[in-house]
Design a protein around this nucleic acid. Structure first.
Lengths: 137, 137
DNA sequence: TCTAATGCTCCAGAAGCTATAGGTTTGGAG
DNA sequence: CTCCAAACCTATAGCTTCTGGAGCATTAGA
């Protein structure tokens, strides 16, 4: 028997977020106490931990909903779960590649020592004039 | 003399986004035609191009507002512009590091060949049980 | 029994747009 | 000059994933 606060402490998911997940249908509406407070059991704790972990990995609510639906059918082949994770891996890799491009450009822009004036500042000029950045984006 | 549509085509910033930037104070409210339509000049085009480029680099509206304010004082030292860019570089690097962690974990999770069932699926189990992932996050 | 901590619902806001509805203006063709 | 489609206007709501506050009710422990 956990209160929403217990659940929050044990999973690291904030209380309003738990209620939000309930609203979004990621977790079922739990039993209530006589005074209308939410009362959870162990399975809900585990489910929430699953969600937390998946969110930490950057999976969308939508993907998590799919994975949770899959996990309710342990007899089915797991190709679909695999696909969701692989697809996510691809988007993570794309994001990394894009950020590394930005990193390189920012490094070039930042190679200024700060001892001159705005009128002459490479940061400002690079932002104003796209052609200065090598044009790879 | 550009209409908002011209400006949009020339900078690649969508029309509602231009109006949004105006509302957010990134660009000044321009002159209007007799019929109340926005009419822009070259400086506004350049300013919008600046904003577009900075957004592409992932700078926040807030940071861009600061940089634009700085660029109106070309006589001041540019240390502040430099600081904003450097700070952003740091957050980009942090994001990259975090995504690379996720990449490693997803690679481990995804190392399943999809020919078994959900009940036995590493993706699902890894998400349910945090301890399986090496515990580095 | 009392009270502090915790919980409830409802609503607003954050970031950075995007979209829709319902109306007006513009610019070019005839 | 007239007509019409394309472009424009405002206002408002929605997206995603939460987070925080107001105002009130419940719970658990001293």
């Amino acid at each position: 028997m956990y209160s929403i606060g217990d659940l929050s402490r044990r999973t690291g998911v904030k209380i309003p977020t738990i209620r939000y997940y309930e609203q979004m249908g990621l977790i079922a509406a739990p039993e209530r106490s006589e005074g209308n407070q939410r009362r959870y059991e162990k399975p809900e704790l585990e489910r929430l931990a699953f969600i937390r972990h998946a969110r930490d990995l950057g999976l969308s609510i939508e993907s998590i909903r799919d994975l949770l639906a899959l996990s309710r059918h342990p007899e089915r082949p797991c190709g679909e779960a695999d696909r969701i994770a692989k697809e996510h891996l691809i988007t993570v890799r794309e994001k990394i590649a894009q950020l590394q491009k930005l990193e390189r450009e920012l490094e070039r822009i930042v190679a200024c020592n700060g001892d001159h004036t705005i009128g002459d500042c490479y940061v400002i000029r690079a932002l104003a004039d796209h052609s200065m950045c090598g044009g790879d984006h």
